[in-house]
Each structure stands twice: as structure tokens, then as C-alpha cells.
């Protein structure tokens, strides 16, 4: 039952997105603009600041992710379809997981475009360790999106939701962003320190477990009333 509802919600979200491409276009445009602005500002005479690429990558992911979260729930608000989802007898945490996975897929797709762009503009070899890079991006994005999905759902009826979402989201996800930046920066170092990468990745996994568990636990009571 739980998995079936997750799949239904995820498939519905992806179908709607494939038809409109609204979130994909706005998220990508914003993220690419962000990377370009930072590249023009920071890369001087062909030399980029050390570890700058990792920071810019994660800032772009965080900013674009906030935009995607807001739009994903604005869509549910317009025809009050979130109410319809909550009226169904299905477990509400399954609805949360379906929405979370939809956001995650969109952000990971954006990262596939962002990565080569950041690597090229900041002349850094981010792709030297693809397995670790994939693990860091997946766990970091999951941590960010898990908190973001919960807050975006909570704020869907708030009048100033566009302001409140980043105000609430960024302070809580700062540890995820820091761990993501440190782990990604290590991948571009000439000497690959696997123990340190493993440490930061484990930290990201810990954040994921804590955030997803808390979100699953609180989604039902927060969405009732």
C-alpha cells in the first residue's frame, strides 16, 4: 500500500512536469545563471579560487532547489489538489515520500547539467571519482530536499510562503551544504583522501536518516488542520 501510493504520487508529479517543464526550465535557468555569475566574478585570468567550484555547485543546488520546492507545492495549491491528496485514505507519509522523490529526481537532473558546466568554468576535475561524486550529490540533495519538502508542504497555505521557505530551510540545512561542499572539494584535490571523503559522506547519510525520519514522523500531524 505504502509503496503503491509513493509510486502513484511520484509518477503523477513527473508526468505533470514532463507536460509543463515549468520547474525544469526555471530551476535550470536559475542554477546556470548562478554558476555563470560566480564564474565571471571569481575566475580571474583563467584561474579559479581553490575549492570554489564545490561551493558554487552547492549554492546553485540550494538556490535552485528552493525554487523547485516552492513551485512544486504552488502547483498543488492552485487547484487545492494537496487537499484532495490529504482527503484520500492513503498513509500521508507515503504522499510525503512521493513528493520528496519527485523533487529529488528534478534536482538530480539539474545537477547532471550543472556538474560539467561548473567543472569547465572553474577548471576543476570534479568528475575524477564518479562513484563518490554520485554518492555525495545523492545524499546531500536528499538531505536538502527532505527538509525542504516538509517545510514547503507546511507553508503551502501561508501568505508569505516564498519568503518563509528559505528563511526556515537554510539554517537547518546549513550542515548538509557544508558537508556537501567539503566532500565535493576533496574529490578535486590532487591527492584523493578517501578516509575524509568517507567521513563527510557518512555525515551526509546521518543527516539524511535524521531528517527523513523526523519528516515522516511529523508530516501527518503537521498536515492535519
Amino acid at each position: 500500500m505504502f509503496a503503491r501510493i509513493v509510486w502513484l504520487v511520484l509518477r503523477k508529479d513527473l508526468t505533470v512536469e514532463v507536460r509543463s517543464l515549468e520547474i525544469a526550465y526555471t530551476t535550470l535557468f536559475f542554477a546556470v545563471s548562478c554558476v555563470l555569475v560566480f564564474a565571471f566574478a571569481l575566475v580571474q585570468e583563467g584561474r579559479a579560487p581553490e575549492d570554489g567550484a564545490a561551493g558554487i555547485l552547492w549554492i546553485s543546488i540550494a538556490f535552485a532547489g528552493t525554487l523547485a520546492l516552492g513551485r512544486a507545492f504552488e502547483r498543488e495549491r492552485q487547484s487545492e489538489t494537496l487537499r484532495a491528496l490529504l482527503l484520500a485514505p492513503s498513509p500521508r507519509p507515503a504522499i510525503y515520500v512521493g513528493k520528496l522523490l519527485g523533487i529529488l529526481v528534478l534536482l538530480l537532473a539539474a545537477e547532471v547539467v550543472l556538474l560539467p558546466l561548473v567543472a569547465l568554468l572553474f577548471q576543476t576535475n570534479l568528475l575524477a571519482h564518479p562513484f563518490w561524486l554520485a554518492a555525495i550529490l545523492l545524499t546531500g540533495t536528499l538531505g536538502f530536499a527532505s527538509v525542504g519538502t516538509l517545510f514547503a508542504a507546511m507553508l503551502v497555505r501561508a501568505r508569505s510562503r516564498d519568503v518563509l521557505l528559505p528563511v526556515l530551510l537554510y539554517p537547518i540545512t546549513v550542515p548538509v551544504i557544508i558537508a556537501g561542499v567539503r566532500a565535493t572539494a576533496l574529490l578535486a584535490q590532487p591527492e584523493f583522501e578517501v578516509a575524509l571523503v568517507r567521513f563527510w559522506t557518512a555525515l551526509l547519510v546521518t543527516f539524511d536518516v535524521v531528517f527523513v525520519t523526523l519528516a515522516l514522523w511529523t508530516f501527518e500531524p503537521l498536515m492535519t488542520d
Binding site: I5, L8, V16
Partner: peptide
């Protein structure tokens, strides 16, 4: 409000909610 997804077809909307129930 009608609780329907405008981007989806009528059949997709109804099948989605039938699945939710």
C-alpha cells in the same frame, strides 16, 4: 476548487485518484 490536475487528462486524473482510494 475542483481538486484536479489541469496538465493531466481527465482519464489520468480519475485513474490517479482511483489509485489513491
Amino acid at each position: 476548487d475542483l481538486f484536479l490536475y489541469p496538465e493531466l487528462t481527465a482519464r489520468e486524473n480519475l485513474a490517479f485518484f482511483a489509485g489513491m482510494y
